[in-house]
Design a protein around this nucleic acid. Structure first.
Length: 944
DNA sequence: GCAAGGTC
């Protein structure tokens, strides 16, 4: 009994918990069913669409407790920050560089929670997403979510092409790593599509709404996309070639020989046709005059009609459209369903060669019981399958083929399954054989020919009703035979324009030029229909609408090949290079963004060309739009007016994308900037303005790295960085800029007229001048820099500036022994020792020295916090940041400078000021307080 | 409100 328990216990101990994640629920279910041989338990997940299937399985020679769940396609997607979501207030050109983040849509939050919950319990993670580029990317999204809660998970990738037991077992035996490069390529594609699509769509829509308000009404979108636009381009190009087509008359001679009702031959002129009527008339007259025909040659030779190639996706879409009357979108939807049910192999493939290792015999075998094609299948087995081989391979999936027999499908599913089976059997059988007979005759000097066909072996045609090959009988002739034709006609005709494109034509062109994926061809076609760019005739052919042709011509007139396929094809080629590892994803992204941005800027400049083209086709006059009305809305999300130059301070991303800052849009003329801390994950401009700070800056919504500022701040906060909140600015190490009218140095942007200079400003100015001239700070004492030069540095890089103090200041030296610090005014500062509990906070109570206890990066770190619980004071200071204020003891600085090394001083009045000293004294970091002189207006956290 | 790509 005990032994049994121990054994049970040990067994349980050895079981590895494996989280398996498929791309969709159906796949998860079928994979679980096959791996467990039907022996699984179904559990609810957080998402009602994505269940959890649990079963035991042996993986990598370990007994495993498997949990198989799924996502629903992409879990995460790129989005602009909310401040860029406003069409009217954001210049679309900024969308080329605006920060984008990967977000989980609300509708997938529950799936994410299931993954997190299951990942916490698991030791291994196996990715079972589809084995294509998007599948690899989805796999990475799953990995990202799971590792964030369970960093020690071992991650594996299962690779398979069909959901059959054999293929899945093979995948389990060949688990490998997930391919980052392939996933990177998808990220690049995805980000570019968003930036380019959003920028051009907003630009076109806003512009055309203004210029054609009666046609482009509210709610109508004039979209641009790197796939939909070339698709439109194909339709327009064909339409235009038809429009510009000039028919040309031609003439031909036709000879008819009717023996009786059932025996008839039509002879074709070997010259085919002549474009000169008179010449043709003369020849015709000669033939009529000759009156009789002589048979000059009879030739009979074998002729084959080739069986179809193995089926790839595009061929399936095209044949679906032509033969089954299902549009491409329907075909793919049904095929997907058949795939997840295990009836057919993966339906997205570019391969039309069956791999040698794929044994076709059992696949054919399982079709032998069918009443319609079973006998044919048996015949193939008798002689052995001989699949025709194409030339394309994506090295991932075999051609589409049935994987098991089905006889209970209904409707279009049955129709498509039947097509796939018949196509597969046809491809594995033999070409149809026939005998073609050619009869050459001569009338006068002119030669004519008639052909007949006798089919000798229908072969694949027996199982493939989608192809036609008919007998064409001819009367029996003998060489040298002379007969009198029933008629010798002179037919007049004319060349005709090519027809408009059908859906199958359009898909063919999209495939040829690499527009969209096998799965999305149909969707792009739907998009251009829904945008009123194209219409469909009753015969199913596509014709462009005024809007569509106008847009294409507008860009053509600018000289941009926006509607041509090669832009997208170039990207596709680059994506392949990323997958191969021959090109860096960030370089591809940068190059492509730069390319499209340049086109965008030029398109804005020449937008009247689009107006003109659309006006022409819509037959609508343009509404005169003032240049200002087209002036693009003002740039990046604005935080506040720049205190230096009255430009706009906007939220920006650092050039190396490592973080964010708020900078002036007049850069490089104005270099005002507030650098935001590196522990910020995301930041955006909030809709709320600060009512305390001058200039009412917008607040910022920060999303910090998890736990970065705990316990003091949640990971997501909305705060003002304008300077009204010491707690925030200290904690985040932010140096607010000073509003122009009170806090900037008075000699910058000073009122021009002396009469407008306030007493306060004048006093301040004098104080500052006297200080600078004292040269008390070593960094400037040896400098001949003028005040103007000093001003020029203001806001440029505060770290390198002397920040000037005025008034009576008490400064506390640190415990380094520099107990006496001479301040610019020459006063000796009194002491409040940092590093002890003598720190006073802004509400003038003694600050408490505390230690972070919560788990996270700051655990164990000490900080000061207001001890007075009755006030609203939010004083906060890291104790180790006080330490930073210490002057390094061996810097080779002049002693005078060392004397100025000060640490933390606290307030007589509740106001804190920071003081930073120029390069010589770096990294002196000083927090001082000083009394307010009655005639100077200071604000909290102001820097002097 | 925008793309294209997954999927429901």
């Amino acid at each position: 009994m005990l032994a049994c328990l121990i054994r049970k216990f040990c067994t349980r101990q050895e079981m590895v918990r494996v989280l398996n994640v498929a791309e969709k629920n159906d796949a998860a279910k079928n994979i679980s069913d096959l791996l467990s041989r039907g022996n699984y338990n179904r559990k609810e997940g957080r998402s009602k669409f994505n269940k959890i299937y649990e079963f035991s399985f042996e993986l990598l020679n370990q007994k495993c407790s498997m949990a198989m769940t799924s996502v629903s396609g992409h879990l995460l997607g790129y989005e602009f920050q909310s401040s860029f979501k406003y069409w009217e207030s954001v210049n679309p050109v900024t969308l080329f560089e605006a920060p984008v983040t990967k977000q989980c849509q609300d509708k997938f939050k529950d799936i994410k929670q299931t993954l997190e919950q299951e990942a916490r319990r698991a030791q291994w993670l196996v990715i079972w997403t589809d084995c294509d580029r998007e599948g690899e990317n989805i796999g990475f999204e799953i990995v990202e979510v799971c590792l964030s809660v369970s960093p020690r998970l071992k991650v594996y990738r299962a690779r398979f092409s069909e959901i059959t037991h054999r293929s899945l077992i093979n995948a389990c035996q060949n688990l490998g790593p997930i391919d980052k490069r392939v996933s990177d390529a998808v990220d690049v594609r995805s980000e570019l599509d968003l930036r380019i699509g959003a920028a051009f769509t907003r630009f076109q829509t806003l512009r055309l709404k203004r210029v054609f308000p009666s046609v482009i009404t509210d709610g109508k979108i004039i979209s641009y996309g790197s796939c939909q636009f070339p698709t439109l381009g194909f339709v327009v190009e064909r339409f235009k070639s038809i429009e510009s087509f000039i028919p040309e008359a031609f003439w031909k001679i036709r000879v008819i020989h009717e023996i009786d009702e059932s025996e008839r031959a039509e002879f074709i002129w070997t010259r085919n046709r002549l474009f000169n009527e008179l010449a043709c008339q003369v020849i015709h007259d000669h033939c009529v005059d000759a009156g009789t025909a002589i048979v000059t040659k009879i030739e009979t030779k074998p002729k084959s009609k080739w069986r179809p190639l193995p089926l790839d996706t595009v061929e399936m879409e095209k044949l679906g459209s032509r033969k089954l009357r299902l549009n491409a979108k329907e075909v793919m939807k049904i095929a997907e369903k058949l795939y997840v049910q295990g009836y057919i192999s993966y339906p997205r493939t570019e391969t039309n060669i069956f791999p040698k290792e794929l044994d076709l015999t059992p696949l054919i075998q399982c079709q032998t019981s069918d009443s319609r094609w079973g006998a044919f299948a048996s015949n193939i087995l008798n002689s052995g399958p001989t699949p025709r081989q194409g030339k394309k391979s994506d090295q991932a999936h075999p051609p589409i083929h049935p994987t098991k027999y089905a006889n209970s499908l209904q409707g279009n599913e049955a129709k498509l399954y039947e097509f796939i089976v018949r196509h597969f059997l046809a491809c594995c059988s033999k070409d149809a054989q026939g005998l073609e007979t050619k009869v050459d005759i001569k009338i006068g000097d002119e030669q004519f020919v008639a052909t007949g066909l006798m089919i000798t072996a229908r072969n694949y045609l027996e199982v493939y009703p989608y192809d036609r090959w008919s007998d064409k009988s001819l009367p029996i002739y003998t060489e040298g035979q002379v007969f009198t034709p029933t008629r010798i006609d002179l037919d007049e005709s004319a060349t005709t324009a090519p027809p408009l494109l059908t859906e199958a034509d359009l898909i063919g062109l999209m495939e040829k030029h690499g527009i969209g994926t096998d799965a999305t061809h149909a969707e792009h076609i739907e998009t251009i229909k829904s945008r009123d760019y194209v219409g469909v005739q009753t015969d199913g052919r596509f014709v462009p609408c005024p809007l569509g042709i106008g847009l294409v011509e507008g860009y053509d007139a600018m000289g941009f090949a926006m509607s041509k396929p090669h832009l997208r094809a170039e990207l596709e080629a680059d994506l392949k290079r990323i997958c191969d590892g021959t090109k860096d994803p960030s370089i591809v992204l940068r190059e492509q963004v730069a390319k499209y941005k340049e086109v965008f800027i030029k398109a804005v400049e020449q937008v009247d060309k689009i107006d003109d083209a659309i006006s022409l086709y819509l037959q609508q006059p343009k509404v005169a739009v003032q240049p200002s009305a087209m002036a693009l809305p003002s740039a990046l999300p604005k935080v506040q007016k720049c205190p230096n130059c009255q430009g706009d301070l906007t939220l920006k991303r650092k050039r190396d994308a490592s973080g964010y800052y708020v900078g002036c849009n007049n850069y490089p003329t104005c270099k005002a900037a507030i650098w935001l801390p590196s522990r910020v994950n995301e930041v955006e401009v909030d809709s709320e303005k600060c009512q305390t700070c001058q200039g009412s800056p917008y607040k910022l919504k920060f999303k910090f790295n998890p736990g970065a500022y705990r316990p003091h701040l949640d990971d997501t906060v909305v705060v003002c960085i304008g300077g009204c909140d010491d707690f925030i600015t200290n904690l985040l190490g932010i140096k607010p800029l000073r509003p122009a009218n009170s806090s900037r140095p008075p000699d910058r942007g000073l009122p021009q007229s002396p009469t407008t200079v306030s007493e306060a400003d004048r006093s301040f100015q004098q104080t500052r001048h006297s200080f600078v001239r004292t040269g008390s700070f070593q960094s400037y004492s040896g400098s001949n820099r003028s005040d103007q030069e000093l001003d020029a540095d203001w806001g440029d890089d505060l770290d390198d500036d002397i920040l000037i103090m005025a008034g009576n200041i008490d400064v506390a030296p640190l415990s380094s022994g520099n107990n006496s610090a001479t301040m610019p005014t020459g006063r000796t500062l009194s002491t409040a020792v940092a590093g002890s509990n003598d720190v006073l906070c802004t509400c003038r109570t003694q600050a408490l020295l505390l230690t972070v206890r919560k788990e996270g990066p700051n655990k164990g770190r000490q900080f000061y916090k207001c001890g007075n619980q009755t006030t609203d004071c939010r004083f906060f200071l890291w104790s180790d940041e006080i330490g930073n204020a210490q002057v390094p003891s061996q810097t080779g600085r002049p002693p005078q400078a060392q004397n100025q090394a000060v640490g933390v001083a606290n307030c007589h009045c509740g106001i804190q000021a920071k003081m930073k000293v120029g390069s010589l004294l770096k990294p002196v970091h000083l927090i001082v307080t000083f009394p307010i002189t009655p005639y100077i207006s200071y604000s909290q956290n102001q820097i002097y």
